[in-house]
Structures are given as structure tokens and as C-alpha cells.
């Protein structure tokens, strides 16, 4: 049986790691390489590393940096930020990323999903969808780190990216991001019900129960979180223990029965 994953998200801006609230008021929370080394030592299931400035400033994805990060990462690594063509995807995969995640460029060129999936396979393509609820309660998609409304309805867009060949959806609630008040379960549930591909819940985790709810109530296949790991004593291992306790299948932390 495949396991539900707990994924630390690392947001990268300029030279450091940051974390904000509702995609704003970014705080410095360290540098990338030491954070990757710590999560690697802690044996996390997977990591997501996102350059949040790249699409806003039209910066090329930085293959050299990714190569040095990937070498420190003995688990799957997903890389995103500013990716808008097949050559960049190839560069990042060859630099050691296991998956790439795209967001803004997919609204302009949805066929990019088909092209990437047919060249490198669906398993390496994570469609990232950032969502804000409007005054009427409708969930709408935003591009460019939450700064540009796309006027796409999230369910419709999720179905389209899945049909075109995305392997997973990273679904982030901008409203809940950084608040640590819990995931937007209604949003996650709507998307999980409309697609067959795995959905990674993101935005708002503040306690382990939030992750349990995202999986058990809303149907997420994985939970991503940042603030809870940056700013509290809570850890990915603690999250997995909490999930395991209520019967969610999680990957066991490896303990050698001798050796190593």
C-alpha cells in the first residue's frame, strides 16, 4: 500500500529561506542548504523546494544550486519556481530534482503539461495551484505567487491539469497560508473529489490534527507544511506518528536492526 506523505515545504527567495502569511510579509527563516541537511537527517518522506521570486522576476531556474541541494537530499525532491519550458524541466531533472512543479506558466500555456508528461512522464510533474476564496465564496486560482488573478475556477482547472497529464496537484490555500489555523478542508475536498491523481494539501497546518483532517476528512494523499516546522516544536516525524495513531498508512522511520 502506498503511504501518505508528510512534506516540508522550503520557500526560497534570493539567498535565503522565507515563510510568510497569506503569501505576504515574508520572514527570513534560514538558509537552504542547512535546512535540507536537517530534513535529510530527520528522514522526511519528500521535500518541496520553491523559488517564490522566480516567476515574478522572470528568473531562470538555477540548475547549479539545485544540483548542490539535490546531492544532500536522499529522498525525493520536488523543485519549482519560474519553470516555463521543457528545457528548464530537463535541466532541473538532470540536476537531481525528482519532480518539478509548475504554476504560473501553465495558465499561459496549458499544453506545456502534455509536453512535459509525454517527454518525462506524469510522475515528475506536479501542478501547483494557488487558490483564494472570493467574496462570494468561490475558489479562484491565482498565478505569480498569488499576485495575479486568473479567473479560473479551481475544480475546473484541477480537472484540466489532470486530464493533460499532471501526476499530482499541490493545492495551496493562499487565505490559510502561514496562519496555522488549519487547512481549507472544503477546498481540498472539492479538488480530491474531482480528480483521480494525488492531491497534496498545503496552506494552514498548525497542529498535527490539521494533517489528520486533511487526509481523513478531505481525502489528501499527502500534506505539505512550512510554518509548523519552522516556528514550532512540531516535526514531520511527530506528524507521521499522529497520522499513524489514527490508522493512516505512513512510511515507517527506518531503524536498522543492526549496522549503519
Amino acid at each position: 500500500m502506498l503511504k501518505v506523505r508528510v512534506i516540508p515545504t522550503l520557500l526560497w527567495k534570493g539567498f535565503g529561506l522565507v515563510k510568510g502569511v497569506a503569501f505576504n510579509s515574508w520572514r527570513q527563516v534560514g538558509t537552504v542548504l542547512p535546512a535540507i541537511k536537517i530534513y535529510n537527517a530527520r528522514d522526511v518522506d519528500e521535500m518541496i523546494l520553491m523559488d517564490i521570486e522566480a516567476s515574478l522576476l522572470s528568473i531562470e531556474p538555477d540548475g547549479d544550486s539545485i544540483e548542490s541541494f539535490a546531492e544532500e537530499c536522499s529522498m525525493p525532491l520536488t523543485v519549482g519556481g519560474g519553470i516555463n519550458n521543457l528545457e528548464q524541466v530537463q535541466k532541473l531533472l538532470y540536476a537531481g530534482a525528482d519532480k518539478v512543479t509548475l504554476n504560473s506558466s501553465l495558465y499561459e500555456t496549458p499544453t506545456l503539461i502534455n509536453v512535459i508528461a509525454s517527454h518525462f512522464g506524469s510522475q515528475c510533474l506536479v501542478a501547483s495551484i494557488d487558490v483564494r476564496q472570493n467574496g462570494l465564496g468561490k475558489y479562484q486560482c491565482y498565478s505569480h505567487a498569488g499576485s495575479v488573478p486568473t479567473h479560473k475556477c479551481v475544480v475546473q482547472w484541477a480537472k484540466e491539469v489532470a486530464d493533460r497529464g499532471a501526476g499530482e496537484i499541490l493545492l495551496t490555500s493562499i487565505d490559510n497560508d502561514g496562519t496555522m489555523q488549519g487547512y481549507d478542508l472544503d477546498l481540498i475536498s472539492q479538488v480530491c473529489q474531482s480528480v483521480d491523481i494525488p492531491v497534496i494539501a498545503s496552506g494552514g497546518a498548525g497542529k498535527y490534527q490539521d494533517m489528520v483532517d486533511a487526509v481523513q476528512q478531505a481525502g489528501a494523499s499527502a500534506v505539505a507544511a512550512a510554518s509548523i516546522f519552522h516556528f514550532t516544536e512540531m516535526t514531520p516525524a511527530g506528524a507521521k506518528a499522529a497520522l499513524h495513531k489514527v490508522g493512516v498508512p505512513v512510511r515507517k522511520i527506518f531503524a536498522s536492526n543492526r549496522g549503519l
Binding site: M1, L2, K3, R5, G121, S256, G259
Partner: peptide, 20 residues
């Protein structure tokens, strides 16, 4: 594809799975 973390079972421990 089959993607993700999954449990591996050994009918008997061979050299390659020592200590696992």
C-alpha cells in the same frame, strides 16, 4: 506509474537486505 513509498517484503533475508 507506481510512484511513492511502499513496503518491501523479503521471503528470506538475502545479503542485500542484511540489517533491514
Amino acid at each position: 506509474p507506481h510512484v511513492g513509498w511502499n513496503e518491501v517484503y523479503y521471503p528470506s533475508v538475502g545479503e542485500i537486505f542484511a540489517c533491514i
